[in-house]
Simulated scan of single mutants.
Amino acid sequence: MEPYYILSSGTIRRNENTILVEKEDGAKKVIPIENVDALHVFGQVTMNKEFLVFLAKAGKPMHVYNYYGFYSGSFLPKDGNTSGELLVRQVEHYLNPEKRLFLAFSFVEGAIFHACRNLREYPGTEPFIAEIEKELDKARSARTIADLMGCEGRAKEAYYQAFQCFLREDFPFEKREKHPPSNPVNALLSFGNSLLYATILSECYRTSLNPTISYLHEPRERRFSLCLDIAEIFKPLIVDSLIFRLINTGILCPEDFARDFEGCYLNDQGRKKFLQAFEEKLKTTIKHRRLKRKVSYRTILRLECYKLIRHFLGDELYVPFKAWW
């Protein structure tokens, strides 16, 4: 199974035991439902209740993105892997300040490890790495989530400032701006993070984790905040490193972006380039030291969910994923 990205506008409907995508120009594409891991809808499409029931029965999540390519929401079939015991343990770890702080720091530690790993590949980033590691030392002694997030915020600021040392000159970047993204690099970060967030949500759905109970980010209405926690570890490893490669090798160029009063965002051509590279990244395999076999980045995301489950159930202390290659 693999994810399918619907970029064109048109209609999506059930056709016997397949998904039929009919574009506005009349072109049709048939997708066997058993081949689908998740649907990612970017185009302006219409669908009916019958199609949603079809997805639900097959257990296939669907993620929807707005006009600018940023995550808007998800359709998740009825939970098939619910566990009352795990839900109680997740809530317990949130309500216990010590247990919550342990997990929150673990997510920050994994994020900072991969941020420094990225920067070490480029000359001239040593002062920024030193500043980031200083914030990690402060985070170790943080006593509240607010203090911890303060350390993380300052570490991220130093990390983003380092981008100017190695990104191409026609991709200037001074600071992170999200609402709206002000330049191509910010647009890529927002777009890539949205994709990663939705991908992690798909993996959480296939486990017994409740994605609304989080530890670093506050649980809020209308968002799956545990996915934000897990994404902190993998944004530098998967999204940022991909962005650096696409920019510095010339695969993405300024012509792949558009601007309006809402800011800067990828155009259709740029979006296709990024989605193809993102999917290739998730399919890339590495030799897992513990499992002694090759696993993909997508599998690593699911394994991280299972590590959290084992931690909640008291089977194994959680240690954030850290790339060893």
Rank of each mutant, 00 (worst) to 15 (best):
L189A: 04
Y4P: 02
R13G: 10
K138S: 02
L303N: 12
R271I: 10
Q161F: 12
R154H: 11
C227K: 09
E304T: 06
A231R: 04
M1H: 06
K281L: 12
E203H: 01
T299W: 10
L76T: 02
N267R: 02
E24C: 09
E126I: 01
N81H: 11
R289L: 12
A142T: 11
C253M: 15
Y68N: 04
N96K: 12
R176W: 08
K23E: 11
I243S: 06
A162Q: 07
E24H: 12
F105L: 13
K178T: 13
Y122E: 10
R117F: 13
A139D: 01
A198M: 07
E2R: 15
K60I: 15
S106K: 08
N183D: 15
L189E: 02
V45G: 03
A139Q: 02
K281D: 04
A142D: 14
T46Y: 01
E98M: 05
C116R: 04
L103A: 03
V108L: 07
A142V: 14
F128G: 04
V53K: 11
T125H: 12
A111P: 02
I238Y: 08
Y4H: 08
V88C: 05
P219E: 08
K57C: 04
E232M: 05
E316G: 08
E262H: 14
S83Y: 10
M47V: 10
T11I: 15
P181A: 12
R206E: 10
N66T: 03
G73T: 03
C204K: 00
V36S: 02
E218K: 00
L87M: 15
G73H: 02
A187W: 03
F191G: 03
G59Y: 13
E203W: 00
S241R: 15
L39V: 12
L282N: 09
F107R: 07
I230R: 07
K28V: 09
L20M: 09
V295T: 06
G250R: 12
E16H: 14
K57N: 13
K283N: 05
V88K: 14
D268W: 01
V295L: 09
E16D: 13
N183Q: 13
P219T: 06
S208R: 13
N267W: 03
R302L: 09
L266T: 02
K294C: 09
R14K: 15
R259I: 03
E85C: 03
H93T: 06
R100V: 01
S225A: 15
T207W: 07
K49H: 06
A111H: 01
N17I: 00
F75V: 05
K175A: 15
R289I: 13
R293Y: 07
L119I: 02
F173L: 09
L39W: 09
G84S: 08
S83R: 14
F274C: 01
H114R: 09
G153V: 10
F312V: 06
M149F: 08
A231V: 02
K78W: 10
G84K: 05
P320R: 10
